[in-house]
Amino acid sequence: MEYIKAFVVGGLICAAVQILMDQTKLMPGRIMVILVCLGSLLGALGIYEPFVEWAGAGASVPLIGFGNSLFKGVKEAVDKDGFIGLFKGGFTASAVGVSAALLFGYFASLLFKPKMKD
């Protein structure tokens, strides 16, 4: 059941974004920015967190989930530390994803050579 929820919810989010891309010709870079900002907004409105609880990876794996966890991080840090939390929370929440991408990406640049597209 959880798997089906993850598949359907994740798939629907991707399908919706595909329609947006086809209709607007937005480049993937812009799409990613929009998704992250949308995620933190939905997080701030308190909509996305219950949705993640319900849909699991279907809601947290898409970049909207990344945006949501960014806001969640800021909120938790503000609750704990007050004003300075605004400057702590975002990077704390995104630390794992960003660090992993940067580290593995860096190692990949040492291991792999550029290849032709086919």
Partner: peptide, 20 residues
């Protein structure tokens, strides 16, 4: 050269995107 042109004008070659 395909790769040089992609790199300069579009995206790195290993980047996943759909071509119109």
């Amino acid at each position: 050269h395909f790769a040089g042109a992609e790199k300069q004008f579009r995206f790195p070659l290993a980047y996943g995107n759909q071509r119109p």
